[in-house]
Computed example of a mutant assay.
Amino acid sequence: MADLLMCEPTMLYNILNQEIKHSRLAETNYLYLLDVRSKREYNESHIITAQRMKKKDNDYVIPQSMDLECVKYCIVYDGKTNALDVNFEVREKDSDSEDDEVSYVMGSAVLCARILAEFTRHPVYILDGGYECFSAHYHFFRTQKIFSMPQLDSSQCHHSMAYHIFLSDCRQVQEASLQGTDISTEKKEDVSELDAFEPYPIEVVPGEVYLGTVKQACNPQMHKDLKIKAHVNVGLETTPYFQGDTCRLLQISVTDSPEEDLFSSFRHTSHFMDAHVERRSVILVFSTRGISRSCTVMLAYLMHRNRESLKRSWTPGPLPPPAYLTDDKTRPTGQRD
């Protein structure tokens, strides 16, 4: 039986925003995000890519198409469960509800996770605080749509998310035929939506510091959603934001080469970021692809902020080139263990 672990909202946010060449959400065995709330709540709004777990005789039913053994992340959420040993609270049934299932205010995610843990070798995560907590922090990741898997081929269309889309499409086609409407254009947009999904910057310090790419640094919607107020640009490219404002833009003009001197900029960068954090001004640190120069500067800042060594600050994620990861010479000036 796999372990049950709590998943912080920041962890799920970062899982949703991983990319290589394309968003990793399009990979069939990357993430199963399961919503165990009522059908009414799910239809009103859910987290992007989430599938609703159904019940039969008040027991959760795992779709045969769901390959739990191979999935990397399996995350379950309900309304607001925030602990593994939560006290189960049964929700009173609405008089006008057509749903006969027993619904829990808290604890249903744990019940479902225990069942899923029997079929997977990886940990099953329960979203800490559930939908209520996640949507409060990341309201822009709420949706009523069911995302498709555009990179699946025909031999893989039995996978659960594609199957879910198929059933949803059938229902909408039936409703549209009764209403005499044409949904072909709408569905073309829906089918391509996940493939066109643009990952947001990675959240390094919740609500304070983000790590991203030049493309993300030029995106006005991401700036608005994350409330970004300052940039640390570790590269030669420019963006439309904060030009000429040295209080909100720190430009470190270096190329992506191991021969470049990033060490001399660590102290100034850390103090610049400290000043904005103290003012509750959200910062985006970025370079061309967000995987070398900006990541190195971010590691230096975390060492400075947490008073930790490189080894303790370096957690799995986008990594700098090996040449940048030489011993503790990369420790910012004045840093002590």
Rank of each mutant, 00 (worst) to 15 (best):
I252A: 05
R171S: 13
S103E: 15
S257R: 11
F134Y: 15
T246M: 02
N82S: 14
S95I: 10
K72C: 00
Y125R: 04
F134G: 01
C74V: 15
L302S: 02
F134V: 07
R279W: 07
Y77L: 04
M6Q: 00
T296R: 14
A109K: 03
H164N: 12
E203V: 12
D94N: 11
D35Q: 03
I20G: 07
I20Q: 10
S23H: 00
P258E: 11
T28M: 13
T246V: 00
V173I: 15
K72S: 06
S313W: 07
E69M: 08
F134L: 08
K55T: 06
R91S: 12
L299Q: 08
D245N: 12
V110T: 09
Q18H: 03
H268A: 15
V254I: 14
V173R: 11
I202D: 04
C7S: 02
A230Y: 02
N17Y: 02
D256H: 07
S65N: 12
G129M: 14
D195Q: 13
N233I: 06
F88V: 14
F286T: 01
E175P: 03
M1D: 10
S264E: 09
E260Y: 00
Q251R: 09
F134M: 05
R312Y: 06
R142T: 10
D328P: 05
K188G: 12
R171Q: 12
K80I: 07
R312G: 00
S103G: 04
T238W: 01
L152P: 04
H139A: 14
L111F: 04
M11P: 01
P322Q: 14
E27D: 14
L299N: 06
E69V: 10
T28L: 15
K55S: 03
S108K: 02
E193W: 08
V204T: 13
E118M: 11
S257P: 03
E259V: 08
K229C: 05
H158S: 13
Q51K: 04
G129N: 11
Q221M: 15
A196H: 05
F263N: 13
T255V: 05
R336V: 14
V232Y: 01
G235L: 07
R24Q: 06
D35C: 03
K93Y: 00
V105E: 10
L25P: 01
A109S: 15
E101Y: 00
K329P: 05
Y163I: 07
D99M: 13
R307Q: 08
V254G: 07
T315R: 08
G235F: 01
P258T: 15
E41H: 12
P199K: 01
T269E: 06
M222N: 00
D337R: 14
Q18V: 04
S103K: 12
M6C: 01
I165V: 09
R267K: 12
I15Y: 00
D78I: 06
L111R: 06
R142L: 08
L211E: 02
Q335I: 13
S135Y: 02
Q243F: 05
D67A: 07
L325A: 10
I165N: 05
A162G: 09
E237Y: 03
S192W: 09
E101H: 05
L34Y: 03
